[in-house]
């Protein structure tokens, strides 16, 4: 009978060992490199309060949708975070792409799940990338969006007054729709020339980012490209 008690007690101890209560814990880790966005090769900003995504739109799926939200584990990499929530590409695809004519020398790139347009420019060892993205709404407002770009080329954020000056001084029309041109020359040799264009409740981002010299040299081509943009008739 004693051995019965002992064995039950041992078993109880083992089960007790399994009852680990999870608790809040705090620890320090070495600073990590900012995550790389596999869709947009530009570095994502880590700005306080700027929630506007640089690359993708978000979307959900319907109740009882055929596409479950549980994504394949292969996509859920801790090192290279999920590129898109399930259904995002489907939602992004709902924005009809405008037509355009890309200048010669711009090498078309795979669009991934979200991009409407993507080109690579390489000249004399310098690189720049042109991307076209669209998001619903104003994605945080023009100031947040411009400052997100500013952060990508290591520039200090613009003040609201500076943004107003930029919008007034660089106002342009794309297919008869008003937008504004953003020119950001960073101190680290990287620059952005882009156009932010509100259109039918969404905001379109046309962006050329790369080595300053090449971005300046391609500014004329970028302007010509923008003049060829035509949105579908609604």
């Amino acid at each position: 009978m004693t051995c019965l008690r002992i064995s039950v007690a041992v078993l109880g101890l083992i089960l007790l060992a399994g009852c680990q209560k999870e608790e809040v814990r705090t620890y320090e880790i070495p600073k990590e490199s900012p995550p790389q966005d596999a869709v947009a090769p530009v570095r994502m900003t880590v700005n306080a309060g700027t929630e506007a995504p640089a690359g993708d739109a978000l979307a959900g799926t319907a109740p009882q949708s055929s596409a479950p939200m549980a994504g394949p584990m292969m996509q859920a990499s801790g090192n290279a975070p999920m590129q898109a929530l399930p259904g995002m590409a489907e939602q992004s695809a709902q924005f009809d792409s405008p037509t355009w004519t890309a200048p010669e020398g711009w090498q078309a790139q795979p669009l991934g799940s979200m991009r409407k347009g993507s080109w690579l420019i390489e000249k004399d060892g310098q690189r720049a990338e042109v991307s076209v993205l669209v998001f619903p709404g104003d994605v945080g407002g023009d100031l947040a969006n411009v400052n997100r770009w500013a952060d990508q080329v290591d520039m200090a954020p613009l003040t609201p007054q500076e943004l107003i000056s930029m919008q007034e001084g660089n106002a342009i029309e794309v297919d008869k729709h008003p937008g504004f041109l953003v020119e950001l020359t960073g101190p680290s040799g990287q620059s952005i020339a882009g156009v932010i264009l509100p259109y039918h409740g969404a905001t379109w981002f046309f962006k050329m980012q790369g080595d300053t010299e090449l971005v300046n040299a391609e500014a004329v081509n970028f302007g010509r490209f923008m003049s060829t943009v035509r949105f579908p008739e609604h």
């Binding site: 259904g87 939602q91 709404g137």
Partner: peptide, 18 residues
């Protein structure tokens, strides 16, 4: 425990189309 996150306006339009 399992969910999608969406922009409300997008989701509304998507469901209305469905």
């Amino acid at each position: 425990p399992n969910a999608g996150a969406a922009i409300g306006a997008n989701l509304l339009r998507h469901y209305e189309q469905m």
